[in-house]
């Protein structure tokens, strides 16, 4: 069984993993980090999105064995010193979620999006989130939330 060392939300873990163990199940069932969800079995829905070495990735399409040496950030590691990330605040303020099941993945995909474009247009947000499906919101308030958070991220950068 491959032995992996992986840092998740700032904590380093060493574990023996079965080769077929998907990263998402490693996070959920070995580490108990159930904030990251499974919504499909075809890499379409994006509910399982985490940051993998800083970039958004679908943790259902990565073997835990491939994560050896990687740094993973999940929705549970996004807040800093108890303060929510601007995207967490904006999804709340703009009603960018209803049932909330897609939300962790949607927020993590948005974190990556804003890191590379801190002033996206509506269209850029929509295309940037094409790997994430939501069945509740019709996306309008998600777009609004990401753009609102972008404003806060920009302000944070200049202040």
């Amino acid at each position: 069984m491959p032995r992996i060392s992986v840092t998740v939300d700032g904590v380093t873990y060493e574990d023996d993993v079965e080769p077929r163990l998907l990263l998402v199940y490693y996070l959920r069932e070995r580490l108990g980090l159930t904030g990251t969800n499974v919504g499909c079995d075809t890499s379409n829905c994006g509910a399982c999105t985490v940051l993998f070495n800083g970039r958004s990735a679908k943790s259902c399409t990565i073997l835990a064995a491939q994560a050896d040496g990687a740094e993973v950030t999940t929705i549970q590691g996004l807040a800093r010193n108890g303060e929510w990330h601007p995207l967490q605040k904006a999804f709340n303020a703009e009603h960018g979620l209803q049932c909330g099941y897609c939300t962790p993945g949607m927020i993590m995909a948005s974190v990556d999006l804003l890191e590379h474009n801190d002033d996206p247009t509506d269209e850029e947000v929509r295309h940037g989130l094409e790997g994430n499906l939501c069945r509740c919101t019709g996306y309008q308030n998600i777009v609004k939330a990401v753009r609102a958070a972008a404003g806060e991220v920009r302000e944070g950068a200049t202040s």
Partner: peptide
Amino acid sequence: VGDPQVRHR
């Protein structure tokens, strides 16, 4: 190709 997450991996 695919979507951003797919392109990252």
